[in-house]
Design a protein around this nucleic acid. Structure first.
Ligand SMILES: [Mn+2]
Ligand SMILES: [Mn+2]
Ligand SMILES: [Mn+2]
Ligand SMILES: [Mn+2]
Lengths: 309, 309
DNA sequence: ATAAATTTTTAGTCTTGTCTAAATTTTTGA
DNA sequence: TCAAAAATTTAGACAAGACTAAAAATTTAT
């Protein structure tokens, strides 16, 4: 049975191997775990003794198949716990990482599979990361960070990295979401500018690097037609095209119960003094929800001059 | 922030204080934690430095109010996790203790309260132990172990201790359940004999000591009328009086869905070669369930010669 | 009351995981 | 190519927790 510390080292090595680093060096591991290189050397020797990594002095380290299997299991555990915390306990997706760092080390041969079942065998965690299967297979992430794409690219956010926390919080503050489509209009060493859901975003490249997107063909892109309900202006008419993937569990169910279902027409009905909450007219009913919820509802604006006969 | 080890010591001291021990001695703590007295002395000094226990050399140890609060929180956490594992993940009540020993140490200010809410604010864990409130109040257990009662006593099982494991497994093998009513017919140093749900049980006093009961007045006792469905004989007629408290979550819901609801009349319909499963006639429908499930259904036999006119 | 038995503490070690400082190896770049 | 810089390892130390053996205190039993 491995200690928590050993497990964390394996996980760190695994994540460095997945990144585009040539070799998994002592320093990279130390940085990843916020520890010192000398501590890493000590631990690597122990892991090599246990046949979990191959290690040659000064040459970096590589997981053995046994070590990789363990790392994948920890990743699986971490991500399933994150889904549990968001779906079942109604945490926000930005609150669950540290808790999952603890929960991933709980030792049990059955717990994770039972949780997986309870959650309906989710494929992705709340940050968009794929969850390895019981057999240790993991879907490759085929997107790249925003700064890798050239100006004019149209893409969809598939992943937002939750570490380091400072950058993560910044992205959250900007109100960017997994699933959002975007259009890159400027990209240089100073800044990255893109349009998404009717807003313009300006990010430093370091920040933008934590946002992974897949490129969309021009045809796939719904030409700036996809917005969040919170963006709907008074007098505009829209059609609901879905509830954002990052909204799950109880809140999602509640929104569906309230009638925010696909293809439903919607307009702004009443506005409160602070513009929050606002009431929307859905299926002849006025329903007031706060903007935090309205952000989860994806809409497509309808040209208002085209009245239904 | 306390270490897991420190938390375990506080929990051990708390549980010894709750028992009828005069003083919480080094040896008792060592026994409780399966460690050595010298280790205990070391740790007690540390806890005393942190003002979690009062300690005077050779005189035993006592939790301070601060220490007691922490201990109560760990107990709360442990028992809520046990409920989660049984109710949501469909573990059996005899499988959850060790996992809860790990989960109770997860650090979070919000996690346990969210879990508590998800579970519907349970009052007791799957072993019948009361769950302390957020404020640290705990319902006193007012029962006593079976050997404390004299012959002739009628009682109801309110708690089955899950440690030590050997004794616990023995009780499980005997098929005794929280909520069962029993009638003590013999009680001496050699053995304890009682009747419950149509069966006679003979236990060694050490084993019987792990079963806590409350005494019932003669009137409260349904005079041997309360049985488990698995005890119903061919040709007998019975009325369902409930589903046993130890059956929770998905399985309970399923049994209710199948029509095993209170006041329903029931008879044995068909019997399979091994007598398991058996089919029962409920509301004009024949439903086959296995004995393991039938044990959860509490019935009251109806005298068959009294036909409903 | 006092010797024997038991309990508790102390002293000294060991393991795990971490750190700093120093030594060694590898990489960089003039 | 070779000195300087950077990366890596080694040596030595420390804190947490646990253990054994021995010393000290307390309890028990004559
Ligand atoms: Mn995470
Ligand atoms: Mn994640
Ligand atoms: Mn338990
Ligand atoms: Mn319990």
């Amino acid at each position: 049975m491995l200690s928590q510390s050993e497990e964390n080292y394996l996980k760190a090595i695994f994540s460095i191997e997945l990144s585009n680093a040539k070799t998994v060096s002592t320093t990279l591991i130390a940085k990843n775990l916020s520890t010192k290189a000398s501590s890493v050397t000590d631990m690597i020797k122990k892991l090599a003794d246990k046949n979990l990594v191959n290690y040659e002095k000064y040459k970096g380290v590589k997981l053995t198949s046994e070590g990789k299997e363990i790392a994948l299991n920890i990743v699986r555990s971490h991500r399933i716990w994150e889904v549990f915390l968001v779906d079942k306990l109604n945490y926000n997706w930005d609150e669950v990482h540290d808790l999952a760092e603890q929960l991933e080390h709980i030792k049990s041969t059955t717990l994770i599979d039972k949780l997986d079942k309870l959650l309906g065998f989710p494929k992705h965690d709340p940050h968009g990361d794929p969850i390895p299967t019981e057999a240790g297979e993991i879907e490759p992430i085929n997107g790249k960070p925003i700064p890798n794409f050239k100006e004019g690219t149209i893409g969809r956010i598939i992943h937002i990295e939750d570490e380091p926390e400072i950058i993560y919080k910044q992205i959250l503050a900007e109100d960017l979401h997994i699933g959002s489509q975007l259009h890159i209009v400027e990209n240089n060493e100073k800044r990255v500018v893109f349009h998404s859901e009717g807003e313009e975003y300006v990010l430093a490249p370091i920040v933008a690097n934590n946002i992974t997107i897949t490129e969309l063909l021009k045809e796939e892109f719904s030409e700036e037609k996809s917005f969040r309900l919170s963006n709907l202006k008074n007098g505009e008419e829209a059609k609901i095209i879905g509830i954002s993937r990052e909204c799950r569990g109880e809140i999602r169910r509640r929104l569906l119960d309230l009638g925010f279902v696909i293809n439903t027409k919607i307009t702004v009905d009443l506005t409160s003094p602070m513009n929050n909450p606002r009431a929307y007219l859905v299926r002849d009913t006025s329903i007031a929800i706060r903007n935090e919820q309205a952000k989860f509802i994806l809409i497509e604006k309808i040209k208002t001059h085209a009245k239904s006969h």
